[in-house]
């Protein structure tokens, strides 16, 4: 599904080059559930952002579904991202001013999906995550686990091929974490490719494969 080939990303700090990603090679197949582990600052988030095309890299090649991403213009990259990838954040990052329903609906609005289809898709999603009763609440009225459910629902609403999750359970207690992870496993079983960054071995265990990062390089595959 995607291939990262000799990816380098660095920042210049006082004349010295600090590598965030250092000669990183990664191949992810359709249907995989990949867990990325590593200490803080090892480049997990950077890697996810690069995969999501939210961040640029300085050297190397990136192919997504056969498209050479490194050769594309930003606009086209954004279009590919919007079409294929759902992003889940550690801090949920729901839009505070929107209700649960509206948060889930927003990506569809940006995709100009018509009204009736929006309604049915959001209703399905609410149903699936068992949050129909919460649809008119605002994020601050929900618990962390519930918020993350909404975040996942929002990521899934566009039927993405790939889900990127940056420590999705980092702010949750162990019971909530378990629920989220089981949900991920289920999604993966249904065919969605998932890449998650995590600190937790037990979470990583839900995945089909785990890689370990250190100083921007994969140390263990």
């Amino acid at each position: 599904m995607l291939t990262l080939d000799h990816i380098y990303k660095w920042v210049n700090n006082g004349g010295r080059r600090v590598f965030l990603l250092n000669d990183l090679n990664l191949k992810v197949e359709q249907g995989e559930f990949l867990s990325i582990m590593g200490p803080s600052g090892s480049g997990k988030s950077t890697l996810l952002n690069v995969i999501a095309m939210l961040d640029e890299f300085d050297e190397g090649e990136y192919y997504f579904d056969g498209e050479a991403i490194h050769e594309l213009k930003p606009k086209k990259r954004t279009a590919i991202f919007n079409e294929n990838i759902g992003f889940i954040f550690q801090a949920y990052h729901l839009l505070d001013d929107l209700t649960v329903y509206e948060n889930i609906e927003t990506p569809l609005l940006y995709k100009k999906v018509n009204r009736s289809e929006r309604q049915s898709r959001v209703a399905d999603m609410l149903d699936r995550f068992n949050i129909v009763g919460k649809k008119d609440l605002f994020p601050h009225q929900l618990s962390g686990g519930q918020q993350q459910l909404v975040g996942i629902a929002r990521a899934l609403i566009i039927n993405p091929k790939l889900i990127l999750a940056d420590e999705p359970t980092g702010n949750l207690n162990s019971k909530q974490s378990e629920e989220i992870m089981e949900l991920f496993a289920e999604l993966n079983k249904e065919g969605t490719t998932i890449i998650q960054a995590t600190h937790s071995e037990s979470n990583a265990a839900y995945g089909t494969r785990t890689i370990h990062l250190l100083d921007g390089s994969i140390v263990k595959n």
């Binding site: 990052h93 729901l94 839009l95 927003t106 990506p107």
Partner: peptide, 16 residues
């Protein structure tokens, strides 16, 4: 800024 970041990651374009 946060709101803008989120909106962009869930598909908002600059124009919207």
């Amino acid at each position: 800024a946060k709101e803008i970041g989120i909106r962009k990651t869930i598909g908002a374009s600059k124009n919207t």
